[in-house]
């Protein structure tokens, strides 16, 4: 089954995340990952939702999402060229003697040290899913103490974009 990345513009209103998450749960759609944040406009948020499923399922997800009054626009950006990123923070067990070796691995992935403990090192790393997975696997032998990973965020390549239409932008905030 393929993964689809949906870029969804929603009203920045209370409960909108519950509406979307609830819809996925009760219709039996699986969310692979979900990232939410404000856009350049205060009244609009963007949800980047990764869903696993075949074409008819993704079509049904999209149509059901559209029925939510707070959902303004949906784009399946997987149908186009796009860039995507995830951020991970990994706290790895590191004896002082291992630090150089681990730093070397981090360098390969262009990860940065954000904290240092007496027996641990904490890295941040951004990239697409594959790179993040590879970084995680490289550190696993040393002992991962904690791992925090964001959902995927994504954007279309080139001059295409997922944004409000002029008419939508002009319309006052909804209830």
């Amino acid at each position: 089954m393929e993964k689809h990345t949906l870029s969804v513009l929603v009203e920045n209103s209370p409960g909108v995340l519950t509406r979307v998450a609830g819809l996925f749960a009760r219709r039996g759609f699986n969310i692979d990952s979900l990232a939410v944040g404000r856009t350049d406009r205060d009244d609009v948020s963007r949800m980047t939702i990764v869903v696993e499923g075949d074409k008819p399922l993704i079509e049904q997800v999209t149509k059901q999402l559209h029925k939510l009054i707070d959902v303004i626009k949906i784009s399946n950006i997987t149908e186009d060229e796009y860039v995507d990123r995830e951020l991970v923070m990994i706290k790895v067990a590191a004896e002082p003697s291992q630090r150089v070796e681990i730093m070397h691995i981090a360098g390969i992935f262009r990860a940065r040290v954000v904290d240092l403990g007496s027996k641990t090192m904490t890295f941040e790393c951004t990239g697409n899913e594959g790179k993040i997975n590879a970084f995680e696997e490289s550190l696993r032998p040393y002992g991962i103490k904690e791992l925090v990973r964001t959902g995927k965020i994504a954007m279309l390549r080139g001059s295409k974009f997922v944004a409000l239409s002029l008419a939508q932008a002009r319309e006052a905030e909804s209830a």
């Binding site: 409960g15 519950t18 029925k67 009054i69 209830a175």
Partner: peptide, 30 residues
Amino acid sequence: TGITLPITKHNCLLKDPSKLAIVVKNAFHI
């Protein structure tokens, strides 16, 4: 509003008194 989320076309909790008229107008429209 939480309980009726899956069984309403739309719902809302009115927090801002000044929005009443808009909310009701929208409700009848929706």
